[in-house]
Design a protein around this nucleic acid. Structure first.
Length: 883
RNA sequence: GGGCGCGUAGCUCAGUGGAAGAGCACCCGGCUUACAACCGGGGAGUCACAGGUUCGAACCCUGUCGUGCCCACCA
């Protein structure tokens, strides 16, 4: 009954898989059927991942493709295992980035944001978001992201804005938010404060200039700041200058007199050992100024233009630098010629402008207690970091964190909820409070750092501060998966905020996630960091177009070791595409031959050796895949599946199946059933990585609803049939098949070397198959090695021996004796040196005395095998016709 | 300046104490009715270098060289 019906199932599949015709149809179906919508009322254990919200301005790049694929693998895997799975998507409003985009648009119309005013500008940004924002969301659909679209959030939507206000007020009331005049990192182009991590340091070439301040000489790379000097500092123990401490000297070009002070901060061994002190323009100097009660004189405005009265007023900082130097030189005060000096210079991470330290009034989060809690949660194991080595980076940062400057002089973002009254009152307005009104009241102009709202993401997206059902059920989240480059920006902030906001959940329940899984960066085929600026970026969308979403996903997942960087090139994607097609065709073969996934699997005693072998290998593979996914070893999970699929299932099992399928009967029926069951399980195992092709095939094979909601073959947590017997393996059958493989390979090798056409059937006599359970073993060898039954006039011209099995071949004509002799001789040499090595080892009392027993056993059998090889090869050589 | 990591086949990387591996690329032969996006066969490496520990080292230790990344308020 293999039957037209069965044939029609397989013949519905074309010989080449075309992703384009499958992907969008399936994705829409998955969403419509609600597979990705989490049920807050189910009694399954929860498995939750919040998507690191991409910027609203963003487009899907390879880094997203990598992380999204891995998150999708995890959530699909867990869903199949029986977890109530929630993967929550959303976007970040991305303060500076988005504001810049809209400002550029305005600029095309010849306008600046100041021309249209704050309200109109913010309105513009919302419009922009409406029209162009979130392109990445449709791109995520293309990739196959199984996110819960019904729970999509945006950091600026009403709920999340209320969360921001609540958090701000709570921190403020607890004294953890304060406003102060401090030196902060200032971008003179973006015209806003930046937090420490928004500053990127690079080694830039500058000039170190030594200036004589009368009795004492100082050195600086930022000459123009001397206009704001209010002291010179030396080390208290520096004898060279002890007599000068307390003295007043004249500051050149200004006519001001400034003191010489002693301060521990100064390194006497650097330069002249004397430091000019500019409290308004340098963080160290600011602190020295605090300690010595020095005035802070601001000499530059927010654009980096000199404001100090005098000849330099109005000059840009970089024009002022040579100008001031020239003026000093004219006075003969440049004592040492300026010399090139490479030093670290801070740049704005957004626009690369050189950051200017600037004294200004800003809002800060007092991080000490928050950071300590964030560190402790990892230290005491409530939150695990994968890979563990990365934890060190995390500790280094949270343990040495400075207070976090959270105010930004932007318009796009959460406006700081603080109102100032006419008499200097300060009122913080929570989400449910009335804002003060009346004359003289006005709200703070600044907005909050984007990372303030993203720090709330794991709970604000679930409804916090309202204690919603979602929040109760899905917090803490299970895994946070993101690139290691974002630990400080985001991960540490979520830790601090989560632990603080959710304290009432107790120590274990307050963490934002149980596990942090860090991924690497995406690199090109030569290991260089993939980026727009180096022009080596690969657009994942173009891969999806060319090779399909599955191939794209497999390519990135296959490269993903925990925390390891991923190298990608087109050849990788091509290979993946080829693999997907291979799987497609293996399934097509099975279906064309009536593979049956429904019939009960026959009792193992009724199965043939190849059947038991493939079931054994499948069970092993499934266990490995499970274990690797547990460890976030995506590359290894892909690898074992890949090898099982191609090397074992396709190259051997499918080939071995052809014979019984052809013969039909009970033998054929059993094979069809095993084929169906193995393929079924294989498609399920592959589904998390390559969801589209597996669903298409699985539905055709089983007639089931969708593999998305099919049970995982192993490790189920609740419900569903256990598909795979992972406990039972068949070691004897594994040995037998290994033997068969060795024989077949040896015959093929011989044939290739002798230049026989692959199609040519060679008469062969096979002997030495001892095992009676392998009734068809001989036929299988003949089938796979393209041999035929011995003819009546069979005359052996070559004999191959593998283990106990001997294959005599009649090439009905001379074989290339010289070639064969050379080959045998070479093999004999190898075997002899093998024997020598093993004998030497075993003859060494040190070895036999100290090496563990299994190693010695292994060496013994190695020796025995090599000795047997020598005997056999000598026999074969002797049997060759004389020259 | 501090910290972390890496150097294994032409390329990208597994392997972390007991016979050097995979994918891609390469060479030879094939349209063997699932798949030429395929099949069969093959070559390929002083495991960066130098010492040390060990019966035994790609693996552990020390040093050197090369290379990548992160952190950093020495003017």
């Amino acid at each position: 009954m293999t039957t037209d019906q069965d044939l029609s199932v397989g013949s519905a599949l074309p010989p080449v898989y075309t992703p384009g015709s499958v992907e969008s149809r399936l994705y829409e179906q998955w969403v419509e059927r609600g597979y990705f919508t989490a049920d807050v009322g189910s009694d399954r254990p929860p498995y939750v991942i919040v998507l690191p919200p991409p910027n609203v301005t963003g487009q899907l790049h390879m880094g997203h493709a990598l992380n999204h694929t891995l998150m999708d693998v995890l959530t699909r895997w867990r869903r199949m295992q029986g977890y109530e799975t929630l993967w929550l998507p959303g976007m970040d409003h991305a303060g500076i980035a988005t504001q810049n985009v809209v400002e550029r648009e305005l600029a095309k119309e010849g306008l600046s944001r100041h021309d249209i005013g704050r309200e109109a500008f913010v309105e513009r940004v919302w419009q922009w978001k409406q029209e162009y924002g979130g392109r990445i969301l449709s791109q995520m659909r293309r990739l196959g992201d199984g996110v819960d679209w019904s729970r999509e959030r945006f950091t600026m939507d009403d709920g999340l804005s209320a969360a921001v206000l609540t958090m701000f007020k709570r921190l403020f009331d607890d004294g953890l938010i304060y406003r102060a005049e401090r030196i902060i990192n200032w971008c003179p182009r973006c015209l806003t404060a930046l937090s420490d991590i928004e500053v990127e340091h690079s080694d830039d070439e500058g000039e170190l200039v030594s200036i004589s301040y009368g009795p004492i000489t100082v050195a600086t790379t930022r000459v123009e700041t001397m206009l704001g000097d209010t002291a010179v500092a030396v080390h208290p123990d520096d004898e060279r200058y002890a007599h000068l401490v307390g003295a007043d000297i004249e500051l050149p070009l200004t006519g001001r007199r400034i003191p010489i002070v002693a301060d521990e901060h100064v390194d006497p061994s650097f330069g002249t050992g004397a430091v000019k002190v500019t409290p308004a323009h340098d963080p160290n100097d600011f602190e020295i100024g605090q300690r010595h009660n020095l005035p802070a004189i601001t000499v530059m405005d927010e654009r980096g233009v000199i404001t100090a009265p005098g000849p330099f007023e109005g000059l840009d900082r970089f024009e002022a630098r040579p100008a001031v130097t020239a003026a000093l030189r004219e006075l003969g005060l440049i004592v040492a010629e300026k010399r090139p000096y490479v030093h670290a210079v801070g740049h704005c991470s957004r626009c690369d402008t050189v950051v200017e330290p600037r004294l200004s009034l800003q809002w800060f989060v007092k991080v000490e207690s928050l950071a300590k809690a964030a560190g402790d949660a990892v230290r005491d194991g409530r939150v695990a970091i994968h890979p563990p080595e990365m934890a060190r980076n995390y500790f280094d940062w949270v343990d040495n964190m400075h207070d976090w400057c959270i105010s930004r002089q932007l318009w796009w973002g959460h406006r700081i909820p603080v109102w100032y009254g006419p008499d200097g009152e300060t009122v913080v307005v929570g989400p449910d409070d009335e804002a003060p009104s009346g004359d003289g009241w006005r709200q703070d102009d600044d907005v909050l750092d984007t990372w303030f709202s993203s720090g709330l993401w794991p709970f604000s997206t679930l409804g916090w501060p309202t204690d919603t059902e979602d929040l109760k059920r899905f917090y803490p989240t299970s895994v946070l998966l993101t690139g290691y480059d974002i630990i400080f920006f985001w991960v540490a902030r979520m830790m601090m905020f989560g632990l603080y906001a959710m304290t009432d959940r107790g120590p274990a329940g307050s963490v934002p996630f149980h596990t942090i899984a860090l991924t690497g960066l995406v690199r090109d085929e030569r290991g260089r960091k993939m980026s727009k600026s180096s022009g080596n970026g690969i657009d994942p969308l173009s891969w999806i177009e060319t090779y399909g979403a599955d191939a794209t996903r497999f390519t990135v997942a296959r490269g993903a070791a925990p925390g390891g960087d991923v190298s990608l090139g087109d050849e990788w994607a091509q290979a993946s595409r080829n693999f997907v097609n291979k799987l497609w065709n293996a399934a097509r073969f099975a279906m064309l031959n009536g593979a049956d996934a429904h019939a009960p699997l026959p009792d193992s005693s009724a199965l043939a050796t190849p059947d038991r072998w493939i079931l054994s290998r499948l069970a092993f593979t499934a266990r490995e895949v499970d274990a690797h996914l547990h460890d976030f070893e995506f590359a290894k999970a892909c690898d074992v599946l890949f090898h099982f699929t191609w090397d074992e299932f396709c190259d051997w099992y499918v080939e071995l199946a052809k014979l019984p399928l052809e013969r039909g009967g009970a033998e054929g029926a059993a094979t069809r059933t095993v084929l169906g069951h193995v393929l079924d399980a294989l498609l399920r195992l592959w589904h998390p990585v390559i969801p589209f092709v597996t669903d298409e095939l699985w539905r055709t094979l089983t007639g089931g609803e969708s593999v998305v909601v099919a049970p995982w073959p192993t490790g189920l947590v609740s419900g569903g049939e256990r598909l795979l017997d992972v406990e039972t393996t068949y070691p004897d059958d594994e040995k037998r098949v290994a033997q068969l493989q060795a024989v077949v390979t040896e015959v093929r090798r011989f044939r290739a070397e002798q230049g026989l056409r692959p199609g040519q059937r060679v008469p062969a006599r096979i002997s030495g198959i001892a095992d009676s359970s392998l009734a068809s073993f001989e036929d299988q060898i003949r089938s796979l090695a393209r041999l035929q039954e011995p003819t009546a006039d069979f005359a052996e011209t070559a004999g191959l021996v593998v283990g106990d099995i001997r294959v005599a071949l009649d090439l009905s004509g001379a074989i290339d004796v010289a070639k064969e002799r050379a080959r045998l001789q070479k093999a004999l040499d190898v075997a002899r040196s093998e024997v020598a090595l093993a004998e030497q080892k075993l003859g060494n009392p040190q070895f036999t005395g100290k090496a563990p027993q299994p190693v010695i056993e292994k060496m013994r059998s190695r020796l025995a095998a090599a000795q047997a090889d020598v005997v056999r090869l000598r026999g074969q050589l002797d049997a060759l016709p004389p020259r």
